Simulated scan of single mutants.
Amino acid sequence: MDLSFVTQISAPRSRDDLPAPEPGTAYLAGGTWLYSEPQPTITRLVDLATLDWPAITVHDDELELAATCTIENLCDAPLPAEWVAKSLFRPCAESLVASWKIWHTATVGGNLALALPAGAMITLCCALDAEALVWAPDGGERRVPVDRFVTGAGRTTLGAGELIRSIHLPAAALRGRTSLRKIAYSPLGRSGALLVGRVGSDGFTLTVTASTIRPFVLRFPAPPDPGLLSRSLSEQISVDDYLTDAHGAADWRRHVTGVLAEEIRRELE
């Protein structure tokens, strides 16, 4: 899709080169969504690829992903063997139902910023307690947990001129055992519900996405029994939090969320 309203493209080489925010500006990472439909309100693109951030950096205590890290980079990265939760990377990527061409271009940061309920990189990051490092236009920065970064369907905590610099996944979460469940109306359809469970040093966590308008992370000191899990889902996720669209009705999504959550609980118990 040609972006015929764009009149300026900025190619910064450092943070100091980033242009001042102004209406009509969009940050370009992979662009797989940006170029997929008309964008009549966008008149300037800021190409983040020219900043040349390292896609993946392994630290002793965390995995750092540049916002411009592609899905392909993520799935193919050689990581420490003890980070067994890396087994989630490919199943989450496959939940995007995208071709290898999309994997080669689409970015982790772009998926977070787009904030779609079925954003599988959002699921991955929430399940592994990731934080997003956000750059502010005044030179400041802040870290925000991804499960609080996404506030609704297509909504985030990003302010005017802010951008995601990187995503940080703690090593403690990466060492946890995980289980993923997905359901959709059709075998290759957009996720109607996408859930991930994790057991580790911090107990049991259940991440609920795709069926809800924003991600929810339920935390327990140990794997709960079926009754506690069911009650927690009802108490922490209201009926109004479930999504209705072409990919699933809210009542169906609420029901299958409970079914998939119990499957995960049994597997990780």
Rank of each mutant, 00 (worst) to 15 (best):
L65H: 05
P12L: 08
P226Q: 12
S191P: 00
R44F: 11
S95Y: 08
A67D: 08
A261D: 05
D147W: 08
N111I: 14
A55L: 01
L169M: 02
G30W: 00
D61Q: 10
L128D: 00
A77Q: 01
W100T: 05
Y242G: 06
S201A: 13
P145N: 07
R175S: 06
R13M: 13
V256D: 03
P215I: 01
A77C: 07
V58S: 04
E37T: 14
E141W: 03
V256R: 02
R254L: 14
I213S: 09
L133T: 15
F216N: 00
G189I: 02
L128F: 00
I167D: 07
A160T: 13
E94W: 02
H104N: 15
D61S: 10
G176P: 04
T244D: 11
F149P: 05
P12G: 12
L206Y: 00
R175E: 09
G152K: 10
V46R: 04
I42E: 09
P221Q: 07
T178W: 00
L133N: 14
L79D: 11
G31K: 07
T156N: 13
D129N: 15
H59Q: 12
Q39Y: 12
L163W: 15
N111D: 13
F220W: 12
F204P: 13
C125A: 12
A81F: 05
R190F: 03
T105H: 11
L116A: 14
L34W: 09
L28N: 12
S232H: 10
A85K: 01
T257L: 10
T25I: 13
C69K: 07
